[in-house]
């Protein structure tokens, strides 16, 4: 009985040490491989209003993803450019004045509303402000 419990105790010490060693190896490994946090922040994006003439669109990087600004007759709109179907980046069709997703032909209005195709939801809007001839996203 005595030796039995001693054996058990030493056994659990060994298993405990082994688990601690594995954890000590896995934590640095996880941190080493985890994606870096830079580039996913919500830093504001600013550019001159003249960069987006009427009927045109401008794509930009925003919060680690892609956004787009269009100027229609109705004014300026900023949207996420990531298609809500399977995540391709939509294209601006100047002649038709709408967004086309080339992956599965999803179509959106300049406001982001789905016209046709598989996308289940409209394109999310991004916060946009204008000041002193500048467009500020975020």
């Amino acid at each position: 009985m005595e030796t039995q419990s001693r054996r058990k105790f030493l056994g659990s010490c060994l298993v405990g040490t082994a688990i601690a060693a594995v954890a000590a190896a896995l934590y640095p490994l996880y941190r080493y491989l985890a994606p870096s946090q830079s580039g996913t922040g919500t830093a504001k994006v600013t550019f001159a209003a003249t960069e987006v003439p009427e009927g045109e669109a401008k794509f930009f990087e925003y919060a680690g993803s892609t956004g787009v600004v269009v100027r229609t007759k109705g004014g300026l709109i900023a949207l996420s450019a990531v298609c809500t179907h399977l995540g391709c980046i939509v294209q601006w069709e100047k002649d038709k004045q709408d967004f086309l997703c080339p992956c599965h032909a999803g179509r959106y209005t300049p406001e982001g509303t789905v016209i046709s195709g598989p996308p289940p939801r409209p394109l999310p809007k991004l916060p946009l402000t204008q000041a002193e001839g500048k467009i500020i996203i975020g």
């Binding site: 490994l29 941190r31 080493y32 985890a34 870096s36």
Partner: peptide, 9 residues
């Protein structure tokens, strides 16, 4: 200098 635990690896 930048990657977490890169120095260790």
């Amino acid at each position: 200098n930048e990657v977490p635990f890169g120095w260790l690896i």
